[in-house]
């Protein structure tokens, strides 16, 4: 009996192992190639909702993309521009409004689970008032696109050349959880630089250099 149990366990293990190995091989990548990296974020923020469905411009939140080498991760006050009012999904809020209307009462404050996390970092209580004695903290977002230290990528140059965000970041507007869409290897960068120099971007000719010193210094 025991022997059979072990055999079954081993077999099942082997199957799963082979399946994962197969999956792994199919997405085989070289060390340091983080293509497809989609870490779990502290708040389940959806680019699909914000950038896709609501059509918010990328630069609304990542406002430094045309001013600094970093596009910038929006500070919490940017979130609060909308989420001071929008505390849950629109349907839920609408339902509550209708219900409150019917019941002739003030609508209750409804806060979704994910947004609760945002308010928690900002030390806001149920009614979005600052909690006493608590200090607001930064949201510890996990970086998705990590270039090595010896690579200096500058958003400004690319924004100025009218390279779309999606060119490097992929179809962000359809991503529920942000992932690294492209391989971001040197060959990938160089390829785009060479192609753009040949064909131009949006009909405008560009001189995208492939000198080492463009990125490495």
């Amino acid at each position: 009996m025991q022997q059979r149990v072990i055999t079954v366990v081993l077999l099942i293990g082997l199957c799963f192992g082979l399946i994962t190995l197969g999956a792994g091989v199919s997405s085989w990548r070289l060390p340091d190639n983080e293509q497809g990296y989609a870490p779990k974020q502290p708040i389940d923020y959806s680019h699909r909702l914000h950038a896709g469905e609501l059509g918010i411009d990328c630069m609304f939140c990542h406002s430094a993309a045309d001013k600094s080498r970093h596009a910038g991760i929006p500070s919490s006050d940017v979130c609060m521009k909308c989420h001071k009012v929008v505390t849950s999904s629109f349907d839920v809020l609408q339902d509550e409004m209708n219900k409150a209307d019917e019941e002739k009462r003030k609508p209750k404050q409804i806060v979704s689970d994910e947004l609760r996390k945002l308010y928690d970092t900002l030390a806001l209580d149920e009614t979005l008032q600052p909690q006493r004695g608590a200090t607001a903290k930064s949201i510890p977002w996990v970086r998705v696109h990590n270039l090595p230290d010896h690579v200096h990528f500058d958003h400004r140059a690319h924004v100025a050349a009218e390279v779309t965000c999606q060119k490097c970041h992929g179809p962000v507007e359809s991503m529920q959880r942000m992932e690294q869409y492209e391989s971001l290897t040197m060959g990938w960068c160089v390829n785009c630089h060479q192609e753009s120099t040949k064909t131009g971007i949006n009909g405008k000719s560009v001189d995208a250099k492939t000198d080492c010193a463009v990125c490495h210094y």
Binding site: T20, L21, S75, D77, S138, I139, P140, R143, N146
Partner: peptide
């Protein structure tokens, strides 16, 4: 061991802390 083989580890997780109020 099979599973480990299938995916050599990711680079260490990097946390980016934005301002609360920029």
């Amino acid at each position: 061991s099979l599973a480990t083989l299938s995916g050599c580890g990711r680079a260490p997780e990097v946390i980016a802390l934005p301002f609360v109020d920029q």
